[in-house]
Amino acid sequence: MENPRSGEVIVVGSGVIGLTTAVVLAESGRQVRVWAREAAERTTSAVAGALWWPYRIEPKALAREWALESLSVYEELAVRPEETGVRMVEGVQGESRLDELGPWAARVPGLRASTAEEYAGTGLWARLPLVDMPVHLGWLRERFVKAGGTIEARTVTDLAEAEAPVVVNCTGLGARELVPDPTVRPVRGQLVIVENPGIRTWLVSTDADAGTTTYVFPQPDRLVLGGTTEDDVWSLTPDPAVAAEIVERCAALRPEIAGARVLDHRVGLRPVRDTVRLEREVLPDGRVLVHNYGHGGAGVTVAWGCARKAAGLTRPTASA
Rank of each mutant, 00 (worst) to 15 (best):
residue 245 E to Q: 13
residue 228 T to Q: 08
residue 193 I to L: 07
residue 226 G to H: 03
residue 240 P to G: 02
residue 198 G to Y: 08
residue 234 W to S: 14
residue 207 D to F: 00
residue 222 R to W: 06
residue 256 E to S: 11
residue 194 V to G: 06
residue 233 V to T: 12
residue 259 G to F: 10
residue 187 V to F: 00
residue 191 L to W: 09
residue 227 G to M: 02
residue 247 V to H: 00
residue 253 L to I: 10
residue 195 E to R: 10
residue 228 T to R: 13
residue 197 P to V: 06
residue 214 T to M: 07
residue 188 R to S: 06
residue 245 E to D: 15
residue 219 Q to C: 05
residue 186 P to F: 00
residue 248 E to G: 08
residue 259 G to A: 12
residue 222 R to S: 02
residue 257 I to K: 11
residue 246 I to L: 09
residue 187 V to Q: 13
residue 230 E to D: 06
residue 185 R to S: 10
residue 205 S to L: 09
residue 212 T to C: 05
residue 241 A to S: 11
residue 221 D to P: 06
residue 218 P to C: 01
residue 219 Q to F: 07
residue 202 W to M: 04
residue 184 V to N: 06
residue 246 I to W: 05
residue 248 E to C: 11
residue 248 E to I: 15
residue 241 A to D: 14
residue 233 V to Q: 13
residue 201 T to D: 15
residue 239 D to F: 03
residue 227 G to S: 12
residue 236 L to D: 15
residue 251 A to R: 04
residue 233 V to F: 13
residue 224 V to P: 06
residue 236 L to W: 14
residue 228 T to V: 07
residue 232 D to K: 10
residue 225 L to I: 06
residue 189 G to V: 09
residue 222 R to L: 01
residue 189 G to E: 01
residue 234 W to Y: 15
residue 209 D to L: 12
residue 215 Y to K: 02
residue 258 A to Q: 04
residue 192 V to H: 03
residue 216 V to Q: 00
residue 195 E to G: 07
residue 248 E to A: 15
residue 187 V to S: 11
residue 256 E to G: 02
residue 212 T to D: 15
residue 206 T to L: 05
residue 234 W to D: 14
residue 253 L to H: 04
residue 203 L to T: 02
residue 260 A to K: 10
residue 234 W to L: 14
residue 238 P to D: 07
residue 227 G to K: 08
residue 247 V to S: 01
residue 250 C to W: 05
residue 258 A to C: 05
residue 252 A to G: 11
residue 190 Q to Y: 07
residue 203 L to R: 15
residue 229 T to R: 15
